[in-house]
């Protein structure tokens, strides 16, 4: 009777499924399969590190306001860090994506890991784009003017108005980072839960296939 009741509790159900899919040994392992031995494996973590620098510099910029960097040397430096860490972020993410594609890293029921990663890529482009719109300089004036036609052409402009500075700054510093942060977290947790995808030719012998 008491066991029955415990089984039916949502809390214990969640705890059990959590412990099953992602025990702390899987979350923070101290070993990796022997095949995890290539520089290509560093580009995921490099992307995360860049995201860390982006968020840290972005928080400083958020506290000082969108125009700060025009007149403060410190502000310009922090803005530069935000700018260059975004470049690093995309470079590392693209190399990571290429690497995972050629490893066919979606094998072994890892489809959702690929999907969350690809969605994070698209969300990153949207987030970066709104950042370019709130530089409060000529570049953002022009980008907003030019980009409005694309969004208007398919009706998105009716709700997502790139020439509305207030809307863009809120999306850039609140909504989109939350979306990107959550997707990234899910992506990383899925990688940990499922483990690093084994080599394509790893199981040929067991499957009776010649390579």
């Amino acid at each position: 009777m008491s066991i029955m009741q415990e089984k039916e509790m949502w809390t214990s159900k969640l705890r059990k499924s959590w412990q099953k899919t992602l025990p702390v040994e899987k979350l923070l392992p101290d070993t990796q399969p022997a095949y995890v031995a290539s520089w290509i494996y560093l580009f995921g973590v490099a992307t995360l590190a860049s995201l860390g620098v982006i968020i840290a510099s972005g928080i400083v910029l958020a506290f000082e306001g969108a125009s700060w960097y025009h007149y403060s040397n410190v502000g310009h430096f922090i803005n530069s860090m935000h700018f260059w860490s975004v470049q690093f972020f995309f470079v590392f993410m693209v190399v990571h994506l290429w690497g995972k594609f050629w490893m066919a890293a979606w094998r072994g029921r890892r489809l959702l890991t690929w999907i969350t990663g690809a969605v994070a890529f698209v969300a990153s482009i949207a987030t970066a784009f709104t950042g370019y719109l709130i530089q409060t300089n000529f570049d953002s004036q022009w980008i907003s003017y030019e980009a409005k036609d694309g969004f208007n052409s398919v009706g998105i402009g009716s709700r997502f108005n790139v020439t509305n500075f207030g809307q863009m700054i809120l999306l850039h510093v609140a909504f989109l980072p939350i979306v990107l942060g959550v997707i990234t977290m899910i992506h990383v947790l899925m990688v940990r839960a499922k483990g690093v995808v084994p080599p394509i030719d790893a199981f040929n012998a067991e499957l009776g296939e010649r390579k």
Binding site: W39, I40, V91, W98
Partner: peptide, 14 residues
């Protein structure tokens, strides 16, 4: 640079 990074990552010994 991106292509070179990718190439190096695959070829440099770990």
């Amino acid at each position: 640079g991106m292509v070179v990074l990718f190439g190096l990552a695959l070829t440099l010994p770990f």
